[in-house]
Nucleic acid binder design. Structure first.
Ligand SMILES: Nc1ncnc2c1ncn2[C@@H]1O[C@H](COP(=O)(O)OP(=O)(O)OP(=O)(O)O)[C@@H](O)[C@H]1O
Length: 709
DNA sequence: TTCCTGCAGATTTTT
DNA sequence: TCTGCAGGAA
């Protein structure tokens, strides 16, 4: 144990050994907050002989939770029963045990945003509300739950919304489901209503530790406030400059008010950064210091200056991807130590396609796109409905697929009758004769479904999760349905299902495993596929997803106005400052090399749009920058007077040779017949099939290469 | 009442 | 480029 502690600096040690009941570690990026928290857990177990059962550690993502637990256990070299979860998975865990106190049973399922939206859209049909308001209402409801149903906190007040809210919750209850916000709200309600239950959990979790406390929202805070009783110890760590989840209700003032909320709390500040070179740190600091709403803090490193940060501009997003690739190859960056970060998910497209073309292995981290495919959602819905036959949203995904005459109206009659059977849709099918107004065809459809599921209990007991998916997709006719679709529309649905099935780790049969699988899927679908096969790949992710991570080499891409800061966040100062914090988080992920790029044009909905550099780029201090790959015009625009010349060498390296076939957006396909230098740029001559010869300045033109080498 | 097709409109960030 | 859904055919 001492060996571990000796590796820490004085401030970190102070935190690990702290005897205060409440303590806050407030420190900048890369100062070892997570490491300190983890070491403290080990210290509690190994030195203070705290029973691991009595420890609750809360992390921001499930991945971080697994890693933290893994670290603690590997130090002790055994599987310890400590609880490391996200707020949401902790909430789900409590609800699973106390479901009846929240009017559910233990088989409840968790609705994702899509499911919630479907439920809401059913409800607003009965109101005079346009479909286009669905998104607004969904976020209103989320917000209302996040602030613990405090109507005075809602900016927009509307009695109709409240009425919808009531019906929505009733529908959730009838479906025996919770939405994501419920996972926090309902435990808080339980704790406030049932004192003896609260006491039980207070006794259980004597030591509570929370990472990334700056991104806590009110319901999470209240949950902790309840859990921390007279005798509980609490340590939180965070950095107000890294608060980036305001859109989810995160409130920085919660961390700033810590010493008042938890009276007498000790505050420990870590000021030494162990992650980044000093150029990276200084550059990041030059940006974040533009924020007004911050405490301001010291952050230094004893490390090397390191390389200067390379700032470069690109013609468009594909050019950006190509340049990043040539930098990765040119600078000999190891794939696995390299991450490309971006503001919005769809920026990954260009990177993926160009990385693919160049056969560079990559992993998109935290992308849920795969799990949002029709076939995957259908498979999951079947499983969800198997354990929870009250779930209409799940039922509707497969009940009429392939078509068997069960439409909207038929379902209305069916659901009406289901109320007499405790909303159990399986039992309702069993009693299909009592459903009125069904045509013969429709009724036969229901009977068909019933036949497939009538022995579901024994099938669940017998089959593993992957076998269940296979079995029911086959029997419901979905496999056949997808096969036909694959052929007709040239999709890969069957292949996707195969891939999904093979990624399932659970290999035992039975209801318990199924429940476990579904809970993990609902809470962290995006990390499911992270199965160790991703070593040796370049990582692609949003900046939000990079929170808490570190890489040797970081590319921060798409630093353009409207994207970063995002156009929807620039209307108030707080939004803008949050975007700046996001940029700060992005830069401080880098240990050794940092690259920042932006495009002068970007495709959006098939149109090429001209782009301006992000306003944050003007805040970068030139002392820490390497501008050799930045175009002259960009140097002028950004007001960098360094006046370095553009390296033509760099661009040549990327690609084009005489003899290459290329495609131009307007002129079609052609062959490069000449390349020459002109004013420091590359002038290419292309012989187009449908046009005559054309000259282009390579740097200013989008030419797609058709053949490789 | 169900099914199919063409077209308008969409993209912030996530547990 | 992709997707959901309105509107009309069956
Ligand atoms: N005392 C130390 N000596 C050497 N390395 C350290 C020390 N403390 C932390 N580190 C290293 O510094 C890096 C950053 O640590 P950690 O991720 O815990 O920081 P953090 O404050 O949680 O960062 P962030 O807030 O940016 O997520 C890690 O690689 C960690 O191993």
């Amino acid at each position: 144990m001492n060996d571990l502690i000796e590796l820490l600096n004085e401030k970190q040690k102070q935190a690990v050994l702290s005897e205060s009941q409440f303590s806050l570690v407030l420190a900048g990026a890369g100062s070892g907050k997570t490491k300190t928290l983890t070491t403290r857990i080990i210290y509690l177990i190994e030195e203070l002989y705290v029973n691991p059962r009595n420890i609750l550690a809360v992390t921001f993502t499930n991945k971080a939770a697994n890693e933290m637990k893994e670290r603690v256990c590997s130090y002790s070299q055994k599987d310890l029963p400590l609880t490391v979860k996200t707020f949401h998975s902790f909430g789900a865990y409590i609800l699973r045990l106390e479901a009846s106190l929240a009017e559910r049973n233990q088989y409840f399922q968790i609705y994702d945003d899509d499911d919630s939206k479907k439920l809401i859209s059913e409800i607003i049909k009965k109101f005079d509300i346009a479909k286009s308001n669905l998104g607004t209402i969904k976020s209103w409801i989320s917000k209302y739950k996040q602030c613990l149903e405090d109507y005075s906190k809602m900016e927009y007040k509307d009695q109709t919304y409240l009425e919808i809210y009531k019906r929505y919750n009733k529908a959730l209850k009838d479906a025996n489901c919770f939405d994501f916000e419920d996972l926090l709200l309902q435990p808080v309600k339980i704790f406030s209503n049932y004192e003896e239950v609260l006491k039980k959990y207070q006794r259980h979790y004597q030591y509570i530790l929370i990472d990334e406390y700056q991104d806590t929202n009110l319901s999470q805070y209240q949950l902790i406030k309840y859990l921390v009783g007279q005798n509980n110890s609490l340590m939180v760590v965070g950095d107000e400059d890294q608060s980036i989840y305001r859109f989810r209700g995160a409130d920085v003032s919660i961390i700033l008010n810590f010493t008042e909320d938890f009276f007498g709390g000790e505050v420990i500040k870590l000021e030494e950064n162990y992650r980044s070179t000093s150029n990276i740190l200084n550059l990041a600091n030059s940006v974040i210091s533009n924020n007004k709403f911050r405490l301001g803090k010291e952050l230094f490193t004893k490390g090397l200056d390191g390389d200067k940060i390379i700032l470069f501009d690109c013609y468009d997003e594909e050019d950006e991807a190509r340049k990043i690739i040539s930098l990765i190859l040119g600078e000999h960056l190891t794939y696995k130590d390299t991450a490309i970060l971006y503001r919005i998910n769809n920026q990954s497209r260009a990177f993926e396609s160009i990385l693919n073309k160049n056969k560079i292995p990559y992993t998109v981290v935290g992308s849920i796109a795969f799990y949002e495919r029709e076939e995957i959602k259908d498979a999951i819905s079947i499983l969800k409905w198997l354990v929870n036959p009250q779930d209409k949203i799940a039922f509707e995904r497969f009940v009429n697929k392939p078509v068997k005459g069960i439409g909207e109206k038929a379902l209305v009659h069916f659901y009406e009758e289901s109320q007499n059977f405790n909303n159990d849709l399986f039992v309702t099918m069993q009693n299909i004769d009592s459903v009125k107004n069904l045509t013969k065809k429709t009724k036969d459809g229901f009977i068909k479904i019933y036949e497939v599921f009538k022995d579901k209990e024994s099938v669940i007991a017998r089959k593993t999760v992957d076998e269940l998916i296979d079995y029911y997709l086959d029997n419901l006719g979905l496999t056949e349905y997808f096969k036909t679709k694959d052929e007709k529309e040239n999709t890969d649905k069957i292949a996707n299902i195969k891939e999904f099935i093979s990624s399932i780790k659970y290999k035992t049969s039975g209801l318990d495993t199924l429940l476990l699988f579904l809970e993990e899927f609902s809470l962290s679908a995006s990390t499911l596929k992270d199965n160790g096969q991703n070593t040796g790949t370049v990582k692609l992710m949003t900046v939000h997803n990079a929170k808490g991570l570190e890489f040797e080499n970081i590319f921060v891409s798409g630093m353009e106005s409207d994207i970063f800061p995002h156009r929807n966040s620039i209307h108030d100062e707080e939004g803008l400052e949050e975007e700046r914090r996001l940029f700060y988080v992005a830069m401080t992920r880098a240990k050794r090399k940092l690259f920042i790029s932006f495009c002068n044009n970007r495709n959006s909905f098939g149109y090429m749009e001209q782009k301006d550099p992000s306003k944050f780029l003007y805040e970068l201090k030139i002392d820490y920058l390497e501008l050799k790959y930045l175009s002259k015009s960009a140097i002028n625009t950004l007001g960098f007077k360094g006046n370095k010349t553009l390296s033509t060498n760099f661009l040549k390296k990327i690609n084009f040779q005489i003899g290459d076939f290329v495609r131009h957006k307007d002129y079609g396909t052609g062959k490069i017949i000449n390349i020459k230098e002109k004013n420091g740029k590359n002038l290419v001559t292309v012989d187009f099939l449908d046009y005559s010869l054309m000259d282009f300045v390579l740097e200013f033109t989008k030419l797609e290469k058709l053949s490789d080498r």
